[in-house]
Simulated scan of single mutants.
Amino acid sequence: MIIRTATSDDWPAIWPFWRDIVEVGETYAYPLGATSEQARDWWMEQPPGETVVLEEQGRVLGSAKMGPNRPGRGAHVGTASFMVSADARGRGVGRLLGEHVVAWHRDHGFAGIQFNAVVETNAAAVRLWQDLGFEIIGTVPRAFESPSRGRVGLHVMYLDLG
Rank of each mutant, 00 (worst) to 15 (best):
G74T: 10
R95D: 02
E55F: 02
L154T: 01
G67H: 07
A29H: 07
Q46V: 10
R142F: 02
F110S: 06
D10H: 11
H100P: 04
N122M: 03
E99M: 14
Q57H: 12
R73L: 15
R89C: 11
P31F: 11
T5F: 04
A123M: 04
A103F: 04
V152L: 03
P147Y: 02
L54E: 13
G138C: 08
A64L: 09
Q38R: 08
H105E: 10
A80C: 15
R149V: 00
Q46D: 11
G150R: 07
A75G: 11
L61H: 10
E37C: 05
V77D: 05
Q130E: 09
A125W: 12
R19K: 15
R106M: 02
D107S: 14
G138Q: 06
G33A: 08
F144P: 02
K65D: 15
R91N: 09
G90W: 08
R151F: 12
T121F: 02
P16V: 11
Q130G: 05
A6M: 00
E23G: 11
E37S: 13
D107G: 14
W15G: 00
V156G: 10
E37Q: 15
E56P: 04
A124H: 01
G25K: 08
P48I: 01
A80D: 10
A39R: 01
G150F: 04
G74A: 07
L128C: 02
Q130I: 00
T27N: 08
R151G: 00
G98M: 14
W15F: 08
Q114K: 03
G92S: 03
W43Y: 03
T51E: 10
Q57I: 14
R19H: 15
V156A: 13
S8M: 09
P31S: 08
A103G: 04
G72W: 04
T51D: 08
T121A: 06
H76T: 01
V53W: 07
V60H: 06
P16I: 11
Q114M: 09
I3V: 12
V24Q: 15
L159E: 06
E56N: 13
A64Q: 03
G25T: 08
I3R: 05
A111Y: 01
A6D: 06
A103C: 08
T35W: 06
R89V: 11
F82I: 13
L161P: 13
S146C: 07
R59N: 14
H105K: 07
P48Q: 02
A123S: 07
R73A: 14
H108C: 00
L54W: 04
D131T: 03
T139E: 14
W104T: 09
D107V: 01
S36W: 03
G25F: 09
M157V: 13
A125F: 12
H76A: 08
G112Q: 00
N116L: 08
G25P: 06
F110Q: 03
R95L: 06
V84K: 10
R106I: 05
S63P: 09
G90M: 05
I137D: 03
D9H: 04
D87M: 09
R142Y: 02
